[in-house]
Amino acid sequence: MKLSHLIILAALTSQLLLDSCTQSKSEPISSNTEEQVIYPAIKVESAKPSQELQIPGELESYFETDLFPKVNGYIKRIHVDIGDRVSTGQVLAVLDAPELSLQLAEATAKMRSAESQLNTSKSVYKRLQKANQTPGTVSPNDLDIAHSKIVSDSLTWLGTKAVYQSIQVMTEYLSIKAPFDGVVAERRLSPGAFVGPNDKSAVAIFKIKQENRLRLRIPVPERYISAIRLNQPISFSVMNLPDKQFTGKVSRISHNVNKQTRSELIEIDVQNPQLQLVSGTYTQVTLPFQRNTTSLTVPSSAVATTLEKCFVVKVENGIASWVEVKKGIEAEGKVEIFGDIKSGDTVLKTASDEIPNGVAVKTKL
């Protein structure tokens, strides 16, 4: 019984092995080979990129100055206060300096004395000339002495006159006048205060600002300065007048890059007759600009940035290579690039450091 069972089991095993061999010959085993990835690619283009740069700016008064006294004295009267509008030459304050008045009186007396002496010398010389019409009456030496006296007295008079004029000018400094049309931004002293250049802790009496004309100062990042030009239009807004848009044109370019901020300062003249704008206010500036020459552009995704470099993945003859570039103007999803690359080159639309340098890739434009 056991023997028959073993015979049957052996027959079944042989049949199974036969079926397996037959199946392996008729049906080949499929291999799990990975299909090659196809990368989207684009052509590098030449264009004149334009962009509207949003950067902050600051309004400053066109002219701004602190008024210090030229001479020593006490403040006698103050005619203006903070917020007052002043015009050129207007007297803002008057100083009192009694010693200066005494010096002026002394200089006046000396000048008039020298003038009187000069007039006397001229009169003597004229009388000698008249007497000399009679031969032998006046010696030539007396005429020479009289003429020399006129020259000496004339120089003395000119010296005393110069001293007088100098002190007179100093007395005019007792009146503190506005150097330009503007607004009194600060008044720091009051009547009775001692002021003057000899005061070691000198404090300005007033701060005057010209507010009817302002300067808008804008620091332009270094990467954009080559696209800035004179008379370029701009627009800006301020926080205290959010519903208004102001316009202007680039008036001055500093042509100097700040080493700390890596930016170049430009200025825009802003007319402000109604004093709507206030100096010291921050602004949001819209600065449209465009390159004067063509440059190379690619989609922003085509430029990869790592800690070491900024690059695009160039594909040539099916081989990917990293080409280091520098970015320029970036707008509307495209960016300027500068490097060892030319118009018409093929680069991957999406660059990544996961694609090794020098690997074979398959692309589709």
Rank of each mutant, 00 (worst) to 15 (best):
K2C: 05
H5C: 14
H5Y: 15
L6S: 13
L12C: 11
L17M: 09
D19L: 07
S20E: 08
Q23D: 10
Q23E: 15
S26H: 08
E27A: 13
E27S: 14
P28H: 13
I29L: 13
Q36G: 03
V37Q: 02
V37M: 03
Y39W: 15
I42W: 07
E45H: 00
P49T: 04
P49F: 00
L53W: 13
I55F: 14
P56A: 12
G57C: 07
E60S: 09
Y62N: 09
E64L: 06
F68E: 06
P69M: 05
G73D: 12
Y74F: 13
K76Q: 14
K76G: 04
K76N: 07
R77V: 03
G83A: 03
G89F: 04
G89M: 05
V91T: 13
L95F: 09
L95R: 07
A97D: 07
P98K: 05
S101W: 09
S101L: 13
A105T: 05
K110E: 15
E115D: 12
V124I: 10
V124Y: 06
K126F: 01
K126S: 10
N132K: 02
Q133G: 10
Q133R: 10
Q133M: 14
P135E: 10
G136F: 10
T137E: 07
P140F: 09
K149L: 14
I150R: 06
D153Q: 11
D153P: 01
S154C: 01
S154G: 03
T156A: 13
W157V: 07
G159E: 12
T160R: 05
T160A: 15
K161F: 03
A162E: 15
Y164H: 15
Y164E: 15
Q165M: 15
Y173K: 11
I176K: 04
K177L: 08
A178Y: 05
F180Q: 11
E186G: 00
R187E: 04
L189G: 06
G192W: 00
A193W: 01
A193R: 06
G196F: 04
K200I: 05
K209D: 04
K209I: 10
Q210C: 10
E211K: 11
N212A: 09
R213C: 08
R215Y: 06
E222C: 06
R223S: 08
Y224E: 08
Q232G: 07
Q232I: 13
P233R: 02
I234K: 03
V238A: 09
V238G: 15
M239H: 14
D243R: 15
Q245I: 04
K249T: 14
V250A: 14
S251A: 10
I253N: 09
V257Q: 02
S263T: 07
L265W: 12
I266K: 11
P273K: 11
P273M: 09
Q274D: 12
S279Q: 05
Q284M: 09
Q284T: 12
T286A: 09
L287G: 03
P288H: 08
R291I: 01
N292P: 13
S300I: 05
A302W: 00
T305R: 00
L307Q: 07
V313D: 04
G318K: 00
I319S: 02
W322Y: 15
K326N: 10
K326I: 00
G339W: 01
D340R: 07
G344C: 04
G344A: 13
D353I: 10
E354R: 01
G358D: 05
V359Y: 01
V359M: 08
K364L: 11
